[in-house]
Design a protein around this nucleic acid. Sequence first.
DNA 1: GTGAAAGCGCTAACAG
DNA 2: CTGTTAGCGCTTTCAC
Lengths: 334, 334
Amino acid sequence: MATMKDVARAAGVSTYTVSAALSGSAYVSPELKARVSAAVAALGYERNSMAQSLKRGMSSLIGLIVSDVTNPFFTEFVASIQNEARQAGYSVLLGVSGHDLDSEEELLGLMRSHQAAGTILCPAGGERDYPPARLPNGKMKVVAADNAAPELGVDTVTLDNLLAAEMAVRHLLSLGHRRIGTVAGFAHQHVSRQRLQGYGAALQGAGLDADPALISHGNFRIEDARAACKRLLGLRERPSALFVANNLMLIGVMQALSDLGVRVPQDISVCSIDDFPWASAFQPALTVVRQPIAAMAAAALSCLRSRLEGDRQPVRHLVFAPELVIRQSSAAIG
Amino acid sequence: MATMKDVARAAGVSTYTVSAALSGSAYVSPELKARVSAAVAALGYERNSMAQSLKRGMSSLIGLIVSDVTNPFFTEFVASIQNEARQAGYSVLLGVSGHDLDSEEELLGLMRSHQAAGTILCPAGGERDYPPARLPNGKMKVVAADNAAPELGVDTVTLDNLLAAEMAVRHLLSLGHRRIGTVAGFAHQHVSRQRLQGYGAALQGAGLDADPALISHGNFRIEDARAACKRLLGLRERPSALFVANNLMLIGVMQALSDLGVRVPQDISVCSIDDFPWASAFQPALTVVRQPIAAMAAAALSCLRSRLEGDRQPVRHLVFAPELVIRQSSAAIG
DNA sequence: GTGAAAGCGCTAACAG
DNA sequence: CTGTTAGCGCTTTCAC
């Protein structure tokens, strides 16, 4: 593989000139620039970004850690980040923690060891799981997204999860439902608790008492949600509506409902958080609260970039507004 | 950030000893090893893998280029690769080409410039799009997966796409369908053509002539497939069954069918390639031909690894068997 | 404007 | 078995 030295020799200039011409950092005469370009093309030269990063003490890599790519929210988040990052000249190092904190920590270490300029982390844990100052320890900047508590001590980009849940539940209430169950996420995760709190707040706002029996944890997983849904439907007093805390669990819920022969929306109304391609193709089309994923991804990246450029402002918390998309899985109580 | 020198000083040994102890490459006395570990822990040292890669001339990075992460096939493929790669000590650099050849080439260049040990490429183009020897040019090994023609000159890991299509169409034939339409992928992609060929072969095997009007291109995209499906249903002689060439297009097809008020499977049977989580939750549950994604990912990675370890065997083409999963979207002709 | 030269942190060949 | 040392390819002062 050709090195910069080879290019310099071929172009009859010094390595400095090649470096400067390539990165446009300093003025290089048009003529020399042309000679350099010609030599680069002739040799098929490609800059060794390892050497560059080593010298600069920072790479053009961005870490991206999610708990589960398979979750359509993260899928789209990853797609958006990768897209934006590339446009900004960064490459993305993907890590999947599988909702495991140790794995997440290992991944963070990997990102650091690869000298990632920064990392966008979608944390797997709740605020309790992160000892103070564990995250912002070193020169690698991190911004947390999605399941990110303000207590983490880093910039965060999140949905207004409390409001999202409230919107979903208030929608169900407005259709006349009074007995509304919820399939909630991992109890220790910040998003889950926010959404659960929003659920409670909406019920309370309607003058209803929260019945603990109506809360069933599906742990953000298909199988667990299936079981959780069956628990809810096994209740003596069945709920007439279900609020599901994310899209993956919605799959499990719809499977369970189908298994039990319960019709949507005739027998039960369903509303969940997270929109995704199948939601509109599904029969019935699914009523959901949508997250502005692309905007959140863009914000996370631009926040990270501004930190990389030396922004020393106090920690920022960006919160995005959810949007209710009413389709056919929710209907007035029969 | 602590360097190896710092660790060496703290442990009272030379940098060589630290290096050897850390990588376990040579014998280091247990006592020194312990002193090194202690120093590492005390300083919070993390090895700079940039410097390591620069020195070694090869990094522990693996490139992974897909055309669209959002496609559930790729989503799972990416998840599997990242999982396996990490276990093998590699980190994955993700690239998304968006079905664009220029973008794909740029990404390949990026992987090279990051000194990726190898790259797993899911090509966006057909064999025509790759001039001979464009792929295997240099020390970075590449293995192609999914839409990979043998002509590429690199190891490939693919589904038996021809057979997959045949299985789907033969299944529809066995249910009595005679007028079977297909929503096909990009005409220039290798997978699309293989699947189209399988469709033709199955029809021919049943003594049926292929009617060109029954072939509509959905370009592996939701919106295009929706339009393609509507074209098919606008035919004077409507098909009684549809073979859809991938999962993303299936979304478009189901949307179109729902728009038109056509019931599945009463009015039309549907069978597609690619299984995915929603297929079983959908009403009706969808009949599909499943790809063994995890096995394909594992094969792609182990193939790449063996090349990295110096395997000089001639180019290999690994082909995987599809599996028909009969659910409720296909039924005997009424 | 351009060139020479000094490292970035690490590995491995070589000498002890 | 352990220490010394010469670079990997690049950026960037510092002199010209």
